[in-house]
């Protein structure tokens, strides 16, 4: 018995410290990890209460899926885009503090005077053993008495999935933004013979145009045309 009490105290202490760390850490990723620690300890407490199925499901669903998703979002968000939190206004702080104290007093009173007592439900050890174990009893209860909530939850999840798909669909194809500067095709013409031989004339129609019509310029030398005719010469200066 003493070992159980010790283990329970240790687990809950770590869980509470981790939960406190979660709300006080600056870095949101550290908070998420603190939440992982809390969840794992809560799962361990479930195991102590003989609800192993719930413990395993807690780890698989909460830590393994929900928190991973939270971490995904936190990592993809640029820290600078988050709005700054300068702290609540003084009135809000006093109010919040006061309400917190009231809540603490209420919970303390309920625990210390033992007015809030748990009553055992319809499922006791015998009933569970008769159903064939914990998982079987959960299954029986879920799919007989609670079918409607299960179906409703499934429906809500389906709605969420469809909503996510809808929100994430690619935008309609819009017109490609036209280039702000005129674009020309510069063709290096290799002259045979003397350097001042006339450049060959290529038909402009031979050059395939992708977007609009482009001028065709014959150049003798790769450095000759580094700016587009019609633009200022800043580009030519930059390249030289």
């Amino acid at each position: 018995m003493a070992a159980e009490v010790l283990v329970f105290n240790l687990l809950s202490a770590v869980a509470i410290v981790a939960a406190a760390a979660m709300i006080t850490m600056r870095n949101p990723i550290h908070s998420a990890i603190a939440l992982v620690v809390t969840f794992v300890n809560v799962a361990a407490i479930f195991v102590m209460l003989r609800a192993e199925f719930l413990a395993a499901v807690q780890i698989i669903v909460y830590t393994g899926a929900v928190l991973v998703l939270i971490l995904f979002v936190l990592m993809l968000v640029n820290q600078d885009d988050l709005p700054e939190f300068h702290g609540a206004k003084p009135l809000q702080q006093v109010f919040g503090f006061g309400l917190g104290i009231v809540l603490l007093i209420e919970i303390g009173a309920a625990i210390l005077t033992r007015t809030v007592v748990a009553e055992p439900g319809p499922w006791d050890e015998q009933g569970i053993a008769q159903a064939g174990g914990h998982i079987q009893s959960i299954g029986q209860v879920l799919y007989s008495g609670y079918v409607l909530p299960i179906q409703a939850t499934a429906f809500v999840l389906l709605l969420a999935t469809i909503g996510a798909l809808f929100l994430g669909r690619p935008d309609e194809d819009e017109e490609p933004t036209p280039t702000r500067r005129p674009v020309a095709t510069i063709s290096l013409a290799h002259t045979r013979g003397a350097d001042d031989a006339p450049l060959p004339q290529l038909q402009a129609a031979n050059v395939k145009h992708e977007a609009g019509d482009r001028d065709l310029i014959m150049a003798r030398d790769a450095d000759e045309f580094t700016s587009i005719p019609g633009e200022d010469d800043e580009q030519k200066e930059r390249s030289e």
């Binding site: 192993e52 199925f53 413990a55 395993a56 499901v57 780890i59 698989i60 830590t63 393994g64 899926a65 174990g133 914990h134 998982i135």
Partner: peptide
């Protein structure tokens, strides 16, 4: 009694 789930939990 939930050994396979334990395995999946550690994997996750």
């Amino acid at each position: 009694n939930v050994a396979a789930l334990y395995f999946l939990a550690i994997g996750s």
